[in-house]
Design a protein around this nucleic acid. Structure first.
Length: 644
RNA sequence: GCGGUCGUAGCUCAGUGGAUAGAGCACGGGUCUUCGGAACCCGGGGUCGCGGGUUCGAAUCCUGCCGACCGCGCCA
């Protein structure tokens, strides 16, 4: 299952024995192994001599020499020899034995190859996407969805029991605004795509009311002769007018129709607040309308993400928590904790006090001097704020899972920290300990930031459509005789793969500027490149008419050794990626493997190799590559076509 | 002001204490009598933001500074 681990164990034993012989009584430092720059220098190497240099008071190179001389590989093992180079001890593997061990592990492991199981399986919830249900998913939300789903897959393969949840933020003003606009239009049936249509209504209402507001401001400023204020208003008006132009192009007549209707409304914001309050109070008419608008959006989300194979186990409505008065108990517990301050009728949690009192700063690795801002729980007028509901939501989550991973943008860093502190304040520190905010940076458009309020975004659907269209042209060009259904199927896999790979291969903490060219790149260092390599492996295997007994000793070429080494590393690469929640490690690995395979493919013949034994061995190598590429793609949520 | 994140080739990015800092794109030059050219091979191109420190060894850890972004709501 893990051939590399077997190799390491053997090296470890040889090192310990050699050390005892060369330097009796010396302890081998904790194991770390690295790969030599070239497979010609060995399959694996130990830098232990650098660590030993201090205690033994000798140069690392000298120690390595002495140690290497004492290393006596056993017969039947996979280590053939060891040599000292620059202070490293490089282990060479037995020509046939190691290749056989690795390739058999991959081929026999097949669909399970590399997915090392955890010793402590847990119930884990991954909450991701949770986009406001009043605008379409854009490429920024997509980063969240794709990361979240990949995390879920990584954890599942590790043996955890994973559920995927989506929090429906239906209590906000934004949703009320969208619903209000929909009512103004006479509650029409949505145009498609429905979520873009709803998003346009929402942004239009927002832009129109803001424009009206700033125009009034401007008029007043001009009358009063306030130069600065007037200029400020003019700048805002310009910004919103630009947004309005964009919106007018989306659904003909929609913006104009809303603008006309809103002209007759004296205070639209007041009406939106009224609708929001009615919804909060569970009034049937409001519930019916708001839920309808939310439904339009969620159906769209499910359709877009469903294409990508991303699905949820549950959609949790914030309003349900409100109607159940779930926050009441939480507030009571907080008040009993003694950490709550009252100020002009408001109730405020002193987060810094909690953190100091419970030693959370040290426990969670926060700056000890840093004062954590306090958190208002209840307003002066007695109404509650979001955090209370969020606490109730998380207590509910922890009712059936051991660990929660929230995939949420980094702008919520403080809010998520305060949430954990608040949970600790009411004696639920274990929840704080097991709540991970998986933070990521937003996606920028060249020059501007995306904004739902202004209706300014590149939608996920747009990106997917364009990617698939491009992929189709590519497939059609290369494989014109393929059936139409097959072409479409392949184009879908390739196009979606390209988009996913682009978003997964960049560190989540890095801001990315959305770039069509990069997202739709099909060349080396992309999903299509990996998929293409996979298709090639399949093709070779399909064309092989016979599968002679492999003679692994004939795999002597550097390119073959590189491939064997890479395949051997997959279990550990996966394990690390799953433990550290870094899908990017897998994209890098898969690229590397595909790259090395392409290089092998260019120079080594497989099905008409020189000898029968070599044909068999290379077929095994190709098969193991195929399996490893496919398994890598699987945890990334990218499909592996057998031809393209 | 305080806190967080980021700063690596012209561009987009890998690289969380080990050997000569790597890919792709772009640029220049090559490879097909071929299991699929979405390919392969070669080349130019780097003060790893700047300065100090820790270490046998630092892009990586610590510290100061500079720059970009985010946060510090009785919003959600």
């Amino acid at each position: 299952m893990n051939p590399l681990a077997e190799l390491k164990t053997e090296c470890e034993k040889l090192l310990v024995d050699a050390l005892e012989e060369a330097y009796p009584g010396t302890e081998l430092p904790p194991v770390k192994y690295s790969e030599p720059p070239s497979p010609d220098m060995g399959a694996i190497s130990s830098p232990a001599c650098f660590q030993l240099a201090r205690t033994l008071r000798q140069a690392p190179a000298k120690i390595a020499e002495n140690l290497a001389q004492c290393i006596k590989p056993e017969k039947g093992g996979v280590v053939a020899s060891a040599e000292a180079v620059n202070g490293y001890i490089n282990f060479h593997t037995d020509l046939g034995g190691y290749s056989e061990l690795v390739l058999k592990a991959a081929i026999e492991g097949d669909e399970g190859y590399g997915f090392l199981k955890t010793g402590e399986p847990k119930k884990v919830m991954v909450e991701h996407t949770s986009a406001n249900p009043n605008s379409p998913l854009h490429i920024g939300n997509a980063r969240n969805s794709i990361l979240g789903d990949s995390l879920a897959k990584l954890l599942e393969k590790r043996g955890h029991d994973v559920v995927r949840h989506f929090l429906v933020n239906d209590m906000g003003r934004q949703v009320a605004m969208a619903t209000y606009g929909w009512r103004l239009l006479g509650k029409p049936e949505p145009k498609t795509p429905a979520e873009l249509w709803v998003g346009t209504i929402y942004a239009s209402v927002n832009v129109i009311t803001e424009l009206n507001r700033f125009r009034t401001d401007l008029k007043e400023a001009e009358e009063q002769g306030w130069v600065y204020e007037a200029q400020e208003a003019r700048d805002e008006i310009e910004k919103y007018e630009t947004a309005a132009d964009g919106l007018k192009n989306r659904f003909p007549g929609l913006y104009e129709s809303l603008a006309k209707t809103l002209l007759g409304v004296e205070d639209p914001m007041a009406e939106i607040v009224t609708l929001n309050t009615a919804y909060e109070n569970n009034e049937p008419e409001a519930v019916k309308d708001v839920r309808q608008v939310v439904r339009y959006c969620l159906d769209g989300f499910e359709a877009s993400l469903g294409q990508l194979g991303i699905r949820f186990d549950s959609f949790d409505y914030e309003s349900d928590l409100v109607w159940k008065r779930a926050a009441d108990e939480v507030l009571e517990a907080l008040n009993e904790s003694g950490y709550v301050i009252k100020e002009r009728g408001a109730q405020i949690l002193d987060c810094d006090w909690v953190a100091r009192d419970l030693g959370l700063k040290e426990r969670w690795g926060l700056h000890p001097e840093h004062e954590i801002p306090r958190l208002v729980l209840v307003r002066g007028d007695g109404t509650t704020l979001y955090t209370l509901r969020d606490m109730a939501y998380h207590i509910w989550k922890f009712g059936f899972v051991d660990r929660v991973i929230n995939v949420i943008g980094m702008e919520q860093n403080l809010a998520q920290l305060q949430l954990r502190i608040a949970l600790a304040a009411i004696g639920k520190q274990w929840m704080g300990d097991n709540l991970l905010h998986y933070s990521y940076e937003f996606v920028k458009l060249p020059g501007v930031k995306m904004s739902g309020r202004l209706g300014r975004y590149v939608t996920l659907n747009e990106v997917l459509d364009k990617a698939v269209e491009l992929a189709y042209m590519e497939v059609d060009k290369r494989n014109p005789r393929l059936g139409e259904a097959d072409k479409k199927d392949i184009a879908r896999m390739v196009g979606f793969g390209a988009v996913k790979h682009t978003l997964l291969s960049v560190d989540p903490m890095k801001q990315v500027v959305f770039d069509w060219e990069r997202a739709l790149n099909f060349e080396t260092n992309s999903a299509p490149f990996i998929q293409y390599s996979h298709a090639r492996t399949c093709n070779i295997l399909k064309r092989a008419e016979k599968t002679p007994d492999p003679d692994y000793e004939q795999l002597v070429d550097v390119k073959e050794k590189e491939l064997v080494n890479l395949i051997a590393h997959f279990p550990e690469v996966y394990e690390r990626a799953a433990e550290e929640l870094k899908p990017g490690d897998i994209t890098a690995y898969a690229n590397n493997l595909a790259d090395r395979f392409s290089s092998f493919y260019a120079t080594q013949r497989v099905i008409d190799a020189e000898t029968e034994g070599l044909i068999g061995a290379r077929l095994a190598l190709v098969d193991a590559t195929r399996i490893t590429l496919r398994n890598s793609l699987e945890v990334l949520g990218i499909e592996a076509p057998e031809r393209m």
